[in-house]
Design a protein around this nucleic acid. Structure first.
Lengths: 224, 224
DNA sequence: TACTAGCAGCGTACACTGTACGATGAAGAA
DNA sequence: TTCTTCATCGTACAGTGTACGCTGCTAGTA
């Protein structure tokens, strides 16, 4: 089958691995990963359940492919700017993508194989750090630190029920504070009240830690 | 039922929420969270499947309770030392616990309710930071940064197939390097080779980023 | 044209899941 | 004795992943 015909099929009614995986991502975004079953996915594609197995060896492989599609949405570290700007852009992009597909975070654990998109990111990040003058070991440390921060932040943000200043204030006053006995949790009470009063904005939290980490990494560069 | 009788039941053949949840954690450790079904759990407890529902409203609630048990294993931030030592101890303990129960990391996402053990940790960490002189907003930032690093690191470590210098060298030489075309991934090739040659030890990776973060947070303290 | 091979698609079936419902039997109270 | 309460569990049902094998279409060959 020629490449042209493949495109034809993919954009038409016929199935293809692309179409299956993309629709699976859409379904998981809409209904969560628990709502993703082979039968429902097939239904969304107007096909029979077993037809999917012509494009995907198993549900596990489907999940792997879904995770890799998510990685493809993340901006690669750009080459033309200074290393801190490049790392910041990639981290912010990753955070946005993982906020769009929160199910992908939990899926990364238990999935040993790094997909091709994941590998390309590691290469681009390593390239950026090495060109900025980080020795190999320091670039490895920086890679771990940055990825840990991004994934960990996304993981925490995924189960918090607020994204904006107003939502935070609402949750703090109507849910957190009433549930936290002041004598048992004095500091949490103090914090929640003070953050609400100060108009705390959760959306800015990510950048703060990110910039702190980037600044702390700066001295680890060797003079070029 | 008195507290004594409850203990009796818990330590005897009879069921109890404690016994159910503890056995569920053991099963998940042994077989992964996918291998944990109500029927298998009941079997491990020598009971019928439906008996579990007298102690747990649903499997969701069971998973919540399992996550909270895991949090209980993490050392609370000690009060008697300087803030950096206290934070380091807690972070190292959390990393160890999450390495023992890797399934718990993926479970945290999708679980909105913070259990009591989780709340106690946040209180203890906040208390430590506040006493060390961090203003409320800075303590919040530090909390996010430290937790993100710990969880993100645990998440990454959970799907890596190596823990020691030897395992890393073996994987790098026999799996990574043969799979990475040098022209497409020049920097990853260079890094893998250099790290193997230098006897890279993955076990030390966690402390490096942790100490870097702690040092970067130090200047954010306000003078007491 | 007729025959064939390969292949996309899918219907059925099986072992397994979470759990609703109701039965069973034991223990204690009246 | 009878009644209530409660832990335990058997059965059943809808839904899961997927092995197996049947269709019908298309391309190629003779």
């Amino acid at each position: 089958m020629s490449a042209r015909e493949q495109d034809q099929v993919a954009s038409d009614a016929g199935l293809s691995k692309q179409r299956v995986v993309v629709e699976a991502v859409r379904l998981a975004d809409r209904e969560g990963v628990d709502g993703l079953s082979m039968r429902r996915l097939a239904g969304a594609l107007g096909a029979g359940a077993m037809s999917l197995y012509h494009y995907v060896a198993s549900k596990e492989e489907l999940l792997d492919a879904m995770v890799d599609i998510v990685f493809e949405e993340i901006e690669l570290a750009p080459e033309e700017t200074d290393w801190q700007s490049a790392m910041r852009r990639r981290a912010v992009s990753a955070r946005q993508v993982l906020a769009r597909h929160p199910w992908a975070i939990g899926l990364m654990e238990s999935r040993t194989s790094a997909g091709p998109a994941n590998l390309r990111h590691h290469e681009a990040v390593t390239a950026c750090l090495r060109r900025a003058g980080f020795p190999i070991l320091m670039a490895t440390h920086a890679n771990w630190l940055l990825d840990s921060y991004v994934y960990g932040f996304a993981l925490q943000a995924a189960n918090l029920p607020f994204d904006t200043t107003d939502e935070f204030a609402d949750m703090a006053e109507n849910v957190f504070l009433p549930q936290l006995p002041p004598d048992e949790f004095p500091y949490l009470n103090e914090s929640a009240a003070a953050l609400v009063a100060a108009g705390y904005d959760p959306a800015e939290e990510f950048i703060f830690g990110l910039d702190l980490v980037l600044a702390a990494l700066e001295p680890l560069r060797a003079p070029a």
